[in-house]
Design a protein around this nucleic acid. Structure first.
Length: 275
DNA sequence: AGTGCGACCCGAACGC
DNA sequence: TGCGTTCGGGTCGCAC
């Protein structure tokens, strides 16, 4: 399940391997992945080359000569480097073949990921990119900024952390972990978050994302064959997927409840409701 | 406008 | 054992 840390690792890894190689062939095996004009997709990519790879939130931004290829991995999307002659596996949906007969293959078990090819000058006006909030680690992500976004919000803070227009890059796992680290009850309404709590959220998010990126960097060894993106960060999870297990701090059983349809894990003792 | 929820997918985990 | 059912994950778009 690639979250921002995994996306960043993919960006760095691919950047070392695919830049400036001429694309000679594009195969689209599952067209629904592509949101932009399907006919233009192959046409524009053929003969083109990737000249840089950037990232905004969980979006990968592949820079081409006159276009950007936006790619969102959602839950299960992965990129693999293979040889053109390797047989096509079950969940490989989009294949880019380079002039040297290597392939960049997009693999997605759940078929949830999306790609979007846009003209270069459209990047800033593309909704998905434009609406991203500040990321953990960016200096613009301040308590004042958060408080303003949380103002008058009668919604659980857990839900607000998942809102990419406020903080860009937190998924369900990290939202659970951030709230545990900040000792805030996930049901607490946005409007009731104090400045001190907002500061804790930022501090925790920065720390957790930084750590996850570090671990992501060391676990994804090979992008050529291995599917093993297990991520060592899993071992550091304090609450996520730990329902009924003892809290690592106070030994209270971790609770699992749904907030806005999303599985939410928290320690009822460490994250007491205090309004 | 703000909010909630179903749809999109399918492998894994669960229930019988 | 084998079947059917439920769940989860991020985002969009629709309904209220």
């Amino acid at each position: 399940m690639p979250e921002i840390a995994e996306v960043e690792t993919v960006r760095k890894t691919l950047k070392k391997q695919i830049l400036h190689k001429r694309i000679k062939e594009v195969q689209i095996l599952y067209p629904k992945i592509i949101e932009s004009d399907i006919k233009k997709f192959s046409k524009i990519l053929k003969g083109n080359q990737f000249i840089d790879i950037q990232r905004r939130g969980k979006w990968l931004i592949f820079e081409l000569e006159n276009h950007y290829l936006l790619s969102h991995l959602r839950m299960e999307g992965k990129f693999f480097l293979k040889n053109k002659k390797d047989s096509i596996e079950k969940h490989e949906h989009i294949l880019f073949t380079f002039a040297d007969n290597t392939d960049l293959r997009y693999h997605d078990t759940r078929k949830f990921g999306r790609m979007n090819l846009i003209e270069k000058d459209k990047l800033e006006t593309t909704k998905a990119i434009q609406k991203q909030g500040y990321e953990p680690g960016e200096k613009e992500l301040t308590a004042t900024y958060l408080l303003k976004k949380f103002q008058n919000k009668n919604v659980a803070i857990k839900t607000l952390l998942l809102d990419q227009t406020i903080i860009s890059g937190l998924g369900n796992i990290y939202a659970n972990e951030v709230l545990f680290a900040a000792k805030i009850n996930p049901f607490k309404k946005g409007a009731d978050i104090t400045k001190k709590e907002a500061e804790e959220i930022i501090k925790s998010a920065n720390k957790i994302i930084k750590r996850a990126i570090e671990l992501g960097g060391t676990t994804i060894k090979s992008y050529t064959s291995s599917l093993g993106v297990t991520g060592r960060f899993q071992q550091e999870l304090m609450v996520h997927k730990r329902a009924n297990e003892a809290c690592k701090i106070c030994h209270t059983p971790i609770q699992n409840e749904k907030i806005n349809g999303r599985s939410t894990y928290f320690c009822p003792t460490c994250q007491k409701v205090n309004l």
